[in-house]
Amino acid sequence: MTRTASIVGIIVNPNAGKDIRRLVTPATHTSDVTKVGIVRRAIVAAFESGASKVLLMPDNHRLAERASDGIKGDIEVLDMPLSGSRFDTITAAHLFCQAQVGAVIALGGDGTSRDVAIGWPDAPLIAISTGTNNVFPSAIDGTSAGAAAAFVASGAVCLSVVGRRSKKVVIKIDDRDKSLDDLALVDLAFINSMFVGARAVRDPHTVHAVIACVATPASTGLSSIAGRIHPVGRWETGGVFVRLGAGGRKVRVPLAPGSFTTMEIAEVRPLGEGEKISLSGKTMLAFDGERDLPVSEFGTVTAHIETTGPLLIDVERTLVLAAQALMFDETARHISEENHVY
């Protein structure tokens, strides 16, 4: 394997961590200053750990420029038109793929990781949570993330050892005037709501059904509904379908951080890998917790779970392997591709 460069790509979603959940629950606000700090630490750590170049997604908050200001090294902010929406992340992930980026660090929520997976389905990804009730990304500091990304991008630590394929909900929507493919990394929910509105799903009474590929009681949000009845771990195969409604178990669920509600479960069905499930009729689809797409009464939504999500990089394992290979020693500062340890 030959590499021309060890490129780390960084995406920071400027909009994450500021939605209505801060008002209705004690969810954490993540300021731009906090995000800039994480990215800045990631860039410094990436260069420290052997990255030859850092590529950044531009954003209309200029977080990328602010985070990289004054840092010496080959730093490039992608030249791409900005929409100020989630499509910026999708575009940037796609461009990272074309630029042969070796590891992607994405700061945001579940939605941000989902957009990376849409733009680059096989992205080697470190997903940093900048919100509260995220399932897919984790709370990782920029310093560790930047170092791990660089070790992976340079090949010093092999992606096949520390990267693991995540799951996703593969979704097909057939409606009156459209046929769409989409995906979710945690859950797809069917909401009785006419409007996208403030996006976050927070009213338990509007949730009709949830298809989750990760359902953990350790999370908050939609996936925690299934997680409290039929847990499915991140690395287990398959997922679970839950239909809300009267007649079954009543479960206490933190639909938003620090805010519990009783949900009535009409049906719970485990889903095997690839097992299809179809729902028809008027609904609002929420991908990874956010209302996004209305479906008309003529629409049908078909979904299944497969293990074709992004390659999630295990940051801690990467750093342990690097330590074992003495890569933090002063003498190993200049890591070349001949220096592979695995």
């Binding site: 939605d19 209505i20 959940r21 008002l23 996208v196 509105g197 403030a198 996006r199």
Partner: peptide
């Protein structure tokens, strides 16, 4: 607490 909403979407604001 502070939240951002789409100010062009009356439902989001409401």
């Amino acid at each position: 607490p502070g939240v951002i909403v789409d100010g062009m979407d009356v439902i989001a604001v409401h």
